[in-house]
Design a protein around this nucleic acid. Structure first.
Lengths: 226, 226
DNA sequence: CCATTTCTTGACCAAGTGGTCAGGATGTTT
DNA sequence: AAACATCCTGACCACTTGGTCAAGAAATGG
């Protein structure tokens, strides 16, 4: 009795000339992208596998076939985002120029937010909810990452290349200011009355942030040490 | 058949000496507080009336009796938060001292995030999800609020009291930097290795932000105009 | 005292949840 | 063509969802 009408088989049309295992890759990509959107928008609890499946244009069972479970899918997305994160500003040294490094930091963080706004928001939603899946990462890897860079900022300050500001607060300042344009995009667009941020806008914001933050920290640019 | 055992009436104990209508007030307060926590943590979709009821220590039906619907409850919380928002930096003029005003702005925004972290996160979750309930507010009221203040910053710049930075980006910078400590609390605590931020921490952060941002914008303090 | 209004809450409902599974479709190898 | 592995998906399951409702409990007013 519970047979839906019109449920006869409609064979999935396949883009011409991809008989190989490319289907799997394409479907996975599609699912990950769709899931990133849905999780970012509604959080872990608020997202439904059904919604993700619809966004990816696949049946729910298929999504679960590829990804195993909702939780597994979510974790995989977080890991992908963390990998992008870790690639940021990976090698700096006391010998580098503070102005260059800080500008590169601001710029690359800004571009991460711009290139992966959904991933950025996914991460934000996870933290907002108390970081149930990322506790370990925050207290481990990321903490080390921060303190390694903080140490370098301190050494720069000691050498008189910038003001002796607290380097951890400085990192948070840069994170928050750049993250803002992904996470609060709806607010930024609403207030500025645009419907997207252009490349030129992003460039302008980057320049603004670089200028204010570098000046605010008294960074002396391109000078040899005494 | 579906009768749970142990479901006999357990009369709700009532705090001594509050026979009046104080019960209603107290229950409402309890529900709003619980709902703010749950919505902040899980977003609108991810929050369940059941979870809110449990957090408030009331049966689900009672929550719905007081609040009408999940949506109504959510909207009421948003409105409460917007009211707190609007009270911020309500009257400033070109005649005021930029340094004082900007510091007051940073300080009061910081304290809003500190005093109402759940409300802050609730707001963040709403924006993160594309601001489905706040579109109008963002494009109306809040936009006007921002542009009114932006105009004043511009006039200060014209009078040489600060650098000619884009005032809207400046407001976003202050918002994001302060908001960060509520919204990303889990991250801040994880990285700094604390389990709460003390008043002293907040004071230190406020001082840091004030110093960097004011210096970064070249704000000249307490000077009469030419 | 009774009458009326306001509160309170378990039972219930249709719809949606994450996840399983059987069985057919498709692809690959021989 | 036969054999085997992989892929795909509708039907189904137990459970949760937001919301309604009726029946009773308390408070209030005369």
């Amino acid at each position: 009795m519970s047979q839906l009408p019109g449920a006869e088989r409609v064979p999935r049309l396949r883009e011409a000339g991809e008989g190989n295992g490319a289907t799997r890759a394409r479907n996975e990509r599609e699912i990950l992208a769709a899931a990133e959107r849905v999780f970012a928008r509604h959080g872990y609890r608020g997202a439904s596998v059904q919604a993700i499946a619809e966004a990816a244009g696949l049946p729910k069972s298929n999504v679960l076939y590829y990804m195993g479970s909702k939780r597994g899918l979510y974790v995989r997305l977080l890991e992908r985002m963390m990998a992008r994160w870790n690639a940021l500003l990976d090698d700096i040294s006391v010998e580098d120029d503070p102005a260059e490094v800080l500008e590169a930091f601001i710029r690359s963080k800004m571009q991460l937010s711009r290139r992966h706004p959904e991933g950025s928001r996914l991460f934000a939603a996870e933290i907002l909810g108390g970081a149930p899946f990322l506790q370990e990462y925050l207290r481990g890897e990321l903490r080390d990452w921060v303190h390694a860079r903080a140490r370098i900022f301190e050494q720069w300050a000691e050498r008189g290349l910038m003001d002796p500001v607290d380097p951890v607060w400085l990192i948070f300042l840069i994170w928050s200011a750049t993250q803002h344009y992904a996470d609060f995009e709806a607010q930024v667009l609403g207030i500025t009355g645009r419907d997207t941020l252009s490349d030129a806008d992003v460039e302008e914001i980057t320049a603004f942030l670089t200028r204010v933050i570098l000046k605010g920290c008294g960074v002396r640019s391109r000078q040899a040490e005494a």
